[in-house]
């Protein structure tokens, strides 16, 4: 088995795809370094992330296949599902062949898989645009903890940068210990220490209570339907919802 091992970044993956066309040894699997455990028969090709090579592949997907395909590939990458790199690699192999028609090949396994995965990631992104809850901390910072299934924190950041552009905020992915920080000018991704204590602003408890009361009184008693509620808002997201505490 020949493995391509990359550093886990999107640029790293794109570099690996670049290399697969210039090295004689084609990959049978592409893995991020932290997932590679090694085995007796493994022949390893180390991939050094290279911005120029990555950008060439990035532009090629966009121009020779389609911008939509590029978005799907990026979303699928963020799913962090085991084996997604190889699925992306194969999806792109078809893409180079059929170009912008690729998204019509819905019966092709390679296309169907990437569509399915990127849709899941897109759905979670959209859900979290609504389900993220900021808490106001001392010092005028709004803090939102999340634990999404997929690594979508960078996808939701631009939305909040436009919307809440006059406040300082942090969206903290506590599963992956990464966070987006915004300072009323620009947002940056960073690593955030999970153990830190957060002190709420004085009025925060009062505001949360108002919201909880509102949430309770907005339901129509004769129409209770908890199953429907959970269908739209799965319980795994309740942990950080003010109204569900």
């Amino acid at each position: 088995m020949r493995y391509y091992i990359y550093d886990g970044s999107f640029q790293g993956l794109l570099t690996a795809i670049y290399e697969s066309y210039y090295r004689s040894a084609k990959p049978e699997d592409i893995l991020p370094r932290h997932r590679f455990t090694g085995n007796l028969f493994a022949q390893v090709e180390e991939i050094d992330t290279d911005e120029i090579k990555a950008d060439k592949v990035f532009q090629a997907i966009k121009n020779k296949i389609s911008p939509t395909a590029l978005r799907r590939v990026f979303y699928a990458f963020l799913s962090e599902i085991t084996g997604v790199e190889l699925l992306i690699y194969r999806y792109l192999q078809l893409g180079w062949k059929v170009g912008r028609d690729i998204d019509r090949h819905l019966t092709d396994h390679r296309v169907a898989m990437i569509h399915k995965i990127s849709q899941k990631v897109g759905l979670e992104k959209h859900r979290l645009l609504g389900l993220i809850r900021f808490r106001k901390l001392k010092g005028e910072i709004y803090y939102a903890p999340i634990e999404p299934d997929y690594n979508i924190v960078s996808l939701v950041a631009p939305h909040f940068a436009r919307r809440l552009s006059d406040q300082n905020w942090v969206i903290h992915d506590r599963k992956r210990d990464v966070a987006v920080l915004y300072n009323q000018k620009e947002w940056v991704m960073t690593v955030l220490d999970p153990g830190r204590d957060y002190v709420l602003a004085e009025e925060e408890k009062y505001c949360q209570q108002m919201w909880k009361n509102y949430f309770r009184s907005a339901s129509v008693p004769g129409r209770t339907n908890l199953k429907l509620q959970r269908q739209f808002m799965p319980t795994r997201y309740w942990r950080y919802l003010i109204e569900k505490q």
């Binding site: 959209h126 645009l129 609504g130 389900l131 939305h159 436009r162 919307r163 809440l164 552009s165 006059d166 406040q167 949430f215 907005a218 339901s219 129509v220 129409r223 209770t224 339907n225 908890l226 199953k227 429907l228 509620q229 269908q231 739209f232 808002m233 919802l241 109204e243």
Partner: peptide
């Protein structure tokens, strides 16, 4: 769209923020 120094914008697709016990969305 938001304006400089303002708060908020609209999302063309609409966004649901929560679902009450009757399964209806709170937007």
């Amino acid at each position: 769209q938001n304006i400089p120094g303002g708060v908020g914008n609209a999302a063309y697709s609409g966004i649901c923020h929560s679902w009450t016990d009757d399964g209806r969305c709170v937007s």
